[in-house]
Design a protein around this nucleic acid. Structure first.
Lengths: 159, 159
DNA sequence: TATTGTTATACTCTATAACTATA
DNA sequence: TATAGTTATAGAGTATAACAATA
């Protein structure tokens, strides 16, 4: 009767994916920090910049942040002058969250960082392999039913 | 002058990797839950089962858990009968953490879950693509200098 | 009656400081 | 003096419950 290998997990897709994903999220948060933006704030800006306006409720669903906690997140972004609240015209209970020019500007600056981050993550791979990795990950994401929302938490601190 | 695409991030390796990685970690935590094991407890068991004994200090470094917080983690695992503390013989300040038979048994049961989890994560991929993904992720992990420790946090809850 | 936003609260995870015993 | 373990405490992130305004 053979003992099971207690370190078998190290070769599993689940483990490496979790590990590399957490590292990637941490790297992203690190790059954002000098701009004074949290991953979650970036997520909010991305969603309201990409076209249709969003209510707090919609944003909380898209980001996987509880709507109770979305309040203080939007409060903070409003204080920093990145977004503004506008009473919904059809539904006067809700707030539309809209980006300010400053919010649009900081979003553009964050987006500029991403190609560099991607290059660092795939530094050990050939161009062909980098592309293959991106395609395979997209396929896995699609298979898992993951939408391009940032939910669940992209923000993972190190240490 | 063209506007930058505010949703460019959706196609970045960093984003998809973070997203899929977080989902993978959450799935893993979900599978562990029925066994009453947290990802962190699994990590401790894996490290002390894989050969040489470890002190709390070493475990905290390997797992990226602060040594202050390692105390209550080991306390809890000791209470559950999965590990035991033994004063270091050379250095009487330290504790060696050793798995009990129950700890070894629960670790084996968790390891049995992993192939199934991997299959679910790669359900949309061919056998060849699954293998390619695993290899590419291993290469990225190696390139980033990640060791088979569970640091940083593999435990990411959803909702 | 249900929903949006809000406040208060609690629980987990994480981070800092200070203590003890050993080195 | 430095280190391993410990304790207490404070800060994030996240969850539940309850309320006001609106539907």
């Amino acid at each position: 009767m053979s003992e099971p290998d207690p370190t078998a997990y190290r070769h599993s897709v689940a483990f490496v994916l979790s590990q590399v994903g957490a590292h990637s999220a941490a790297l992203f948060a690190d790059r954002l920090k000098p701009l004074g933006v949290s991953p979650r704030e970036f997520a909010v800006l991305s969603h309201i910049a990409s076209g249709q306006p969003r209510t707090q409720q919609q944003l909380s669903e898209l980001l996987g942040v509880h709507r109770n906690n979305m309040v203080s997140l939007i409060d903070q972004m409003e204080t920093r002058g990145w977004v503004s609240r506008h009473r919904g015209e059809q539904d006067r209970r809700s707030f539309e969250i809209r980006p300010t020019p400053a919010g649009t500007h900081i979003l553009a600056r964050v987006n500029e960082l991403i190609p560099d981050l991607d290059a660092d993550l795939t530094a050990g791979l050939s161009k062909r392999d980098s592309r293959a990795l991106a395609d395979l990950l997209q396929a896995v994401a699609a298979n898992l039913g993951l939408t391009p929302a940032v939910h669940p938490s992209v923000s993972v601190d190190r240490h």
